[in-house]
């Protein structure tokens, strides 16, 4: 009987081992709010919340936008390279019915911080992000710690371009 309990304990240990290991060595858990609906006012608040703390890279993307999808992994890489200096704020401009597609895309690219989903009409959204932005996707904007814009553009960029602006602030 004692042998049976020892065996049971050993089996339980084997079962729980990977769980414990995962718990100890896991990357930060994917937040519940991996993709959060946001109004233009919400987005302004989020961007401003990093003032005096970190530089911000705002990137507006969509799953249907080929150049957005092409540059996306580079931006994720950038966030991993500069975790203390930079906060990437991804904003999905997908159509409402493609929300799940956007969420799956974020998971596929192992994004593990809160990102945002555009709600409401285009014009107030565009103006809340940047007066200089015409509405073309993708759009990127780098804001320094003191809140000043150090770069913004409407085309796809490579890692070096993003990094250039991050280092510039």
């Amino acid at each position: 009987m004692q042998n049976f309990y020892s065996l049971l304990r050993f089996l339980l240990f084997l079962v729980l081992l990977p769980v414990g290991s995962e718990f100890l060595h896991a990357r930060p858990a994917v937040p519940d709010t991996l993709l959060k609906d946001a109004s233009p006012a919400d987005l302004k608040d989020v961007i401003n919340s990093y003032r005096d703390k970190k530089a911000v890279l705002v990137n507006v993307w969509a799953t249907w936008c080929v150049p957005c999808v092409e540059e996306f992994p580079e931006i994720v890489k950038l966030q991993r390279a500069y975790p203390d200096q930079l906060q990437v704020i991804f904003i999905s401009a997908d159509f409402t019915e493609s929300r799940d597609r956007a969420l799956n895309f974020l998971k596929e690219h192992k994004v593990d911080w809160t990102t945002y989903f555009k709600t409401g009409k285009d014009q107030p959204f565009i103006e809340a992000i940047s007066k200089k932005w015409s509405g073309a996707l993708p759009f990127s904007q780098v804001i320094s710690k003191d809140g000043s814009v150090v770069g913004s553009w409407e085309q796809k960029a490579d890692y070096e371009t993003f990094e250039h602006y991050i280092k510039k602030q």
Binding site: D122, Q123, F125, G135, A136, L137, Q155
Partner: peptide, 11 residues
Amino acid sequence: TTKSLGCTIKW
């Protein structure tokens, strides 16, 4: 003048 979202021109 007004603004809307759209696909970037492929230059």
